[in-house]
Write a protein that binds this DNA or RNA. Sequence first.
DNA 1: GTACGATTCAAACGCTTGTTTGACCGCTCT
DNA 2: AGAGCGGTCAAACAAGCGTTTGAATCGTAC
Lengths: 206, 206
Amino acid sequence: MNAPHFSTKERILGAAETLFARHGFAGASLRQVTAAANVNLAAVNYHFGSKDNLIEEVFRRRLDELNARRLDALNAALTADSPRLEDVLGAFIRPALELSLDETGGHAFMRVLARAYAEHDERLRKFLSDNYGHVLRDFAAAFGRLLPHLDKEELYWRLDFITGALTHSMADFGPMKRRGQVTEEAHRERAAAHLIRFAVAGLMAD
Amino acid sequence: MNAPHFSTKERILGAAETLFARHGFAGASLRQVTAAANVNLAAVNYHFGSKDNLIEEVFRRRLDELNARRLDALNAALTADSPRLEDVLGAFIRPALELSLDETGGHAFMRVLARAYAEHDERLRKFLSDNYGHVLRDFAAAFGRLLPHLDKEELYWRLDFITGALTHSMADFGPMKRRGQVTEEAHRERAAAHLIRFAVAGLMAD
DNA sequence: GTACGATTCAAACGCTTGTTTGACCGCTCT
DNA sequence: AGAGCGGTCAAACAAGCGTTTGAATCGTAC
């Protein structure tokens, strides 16, 4: 499943990501993961300590980069003379799109992320909010400045809707199937363009 | 967990719904379910045959009514002289809202539904698409007639975004917490109003 | 070459899983 | 009264789970 030149840790993370996406955290066993990674069963506990820690590490690996890119793109959008709403939106959406295009499992990770939202597991939620909550707050502040007429409650609702739409469509839950001719990349690029247009209009409503 | 005047089958369905919402399909064991339902362990296999069948039955029970209400509301909206976009949207969104207000576990069911989207389990997806796919198609047709300038691809994308936003917000994954004073019902009613306004603007973009 | 820490390995640990079994209960019908 | 039957029950089943163990192996520094 993973080329042999990757380290044991990396092979485990890659296989775990794929299998968590496919079967869920409880549904994918360490035996499946280690078999897919071509690694001894005990390696997970040796390198990560426990299955729970492995799950956290799967998130950390991707989210660190995703959020760094989001914040970079946000700052780039905000340094313009008059920041445009769709650029701020793009700073939120496009890095997620790029990640889901990553050849080494980014697409699987978007599905894992969708599962994380569905898990009301307290430990996992706290981990995500502790480590990555500030990104959402930064974006909310930026949107707030661009849409000063919107009261805070309405703004938060709309950002929540956008998050749901992004996760849902990037993990391609829906009925949208890529046409045979369109490459995976073109498909997702088009999805981002559609989502940005949709979200800009939604944010500016009223 | 369930009043004793409910039948064994109903008690199992109610407990399963709650626990599947909380821990996922693989994460909630039949022993947890039967204990919460105050029922013998073997009752699940006796009444439902298997855990998989129980999962399907949890969906069927709620989705049958949800989709019937959606189609009723859709037809009501379409019989008007000139159907309004927000009424068709309301026909899609409000029944889900009402279900999530149901006192006997509807809220839990919305979380189960969100999990179902995250499950890429082939069996479950086929079941959902076979049994309830026609509802989505009817709504898509209605929206298509109301938004004739929108090409089909764009329309399907936008409906997918709305589905994602609805599921995400109804299962309250996001940061939106209900204020202390607002009742649960008022909270969700406001969510529906916000979502409809957001979605109408998004659908009418360009 | 040999000693040593880091890594891998097969095997086993105790426990939980979904499912099955066969006895037993409470009811209705003759 | 007793046969039949849908339902419940405690108990057991094999299989799979996450984790631990102790020995084998590796690469490197001396």
